[in-house]
Design a protein around this nucleic acid. Structure first.
Lengths: 113, 113
DNA sequence: TGCGTATTTTCCTTGCAGGTTATTTAACCA
DNA sequence: TGGTTAAATAACCTGCAAGGAAAATACGCA
């Protein structure tokens, strides 16, 4: 995944409405009207949120008559999580190294502080 | 973690400069000048990025003479990852249920399609 | 064809994010 | 005290994101 895609994914996740939509879609596919129902917001506004989610690959949409059911796609979610996970790994390594460094510089003749 | 904190954390992660800063800090603490060095950007701009990271708890800062070393804090990162993880769990459950439903409705007298 | 429902598009406003330069604050050093 | 370095703040500009209202589109149905 490119930097720009990661930008777009995290940006998409930075909005509470969009996270709520994802929450809802994790339970099953839904139409725009169904997704909009819980929000004090016009339909076009929700439609725009869906566009943001679609553009970064977090959801996909099909067509069934006039309906455009939305489906959660986890690839983008996976990529976002992977970035965090990789970072935590580096961070952990760093502390492992710090630990061993602290052990190394500890004079065995002196009582541990 | 509150919704607003999650908003702020994902928003902080949505910028490539800030993610690069986090990458760098995963290797060890650094001063503002050190962090700014790789970027084609003025120091105040980097300072603002650090403020964003600090406000949502992704980094903390101490004082050593004129320097304000930055340190990565993983609590906010953990929260962001947890949200994704929880969501994937719901999503997996949904597919497990769908699987068993498909098994249920399958007529045992007919050859599986 | 014409109507109803679902959804998107267009246009507009508002607010905020990210960048700049210039100035200020904070701390060390001579 | 005055000078230097590190960093933050202030003031400003630009662009874009989020929302609303109104109009357009897409499809099914009578």
């Amino acid at each position: 995944m490119t930097t720009a895609q990661l930008d777009a994914t995290f940006l998409a996740l930075a909005d509470p409405t969009r996270r709520a939509i994802i929450d809802r879609l994790a339970l099953g596919d839904a139409t725009v009207n169904e997704l909009a129902e819980p929000f004090a917001m016009t339909l076009p506004a929700v439609s725009k949120h869906l566009k943001v989610l679609e553009r970064c690959g977090l959801i996909s949409r099909s067509r069934r008559a006039q309906f455009r059911p939305c489906r959660l796609e986890t690839a983008a979610l996976d990529a976002a999580e992977s970035w965090i996970e990789e970072n935590r790994r580096l961070w952990s390594d760093r502390f492992d190294k710090l630990d061993s460094h602290l052990r190394d510089i500890q004079d065995p003749e002196e009582a541990p502080q």
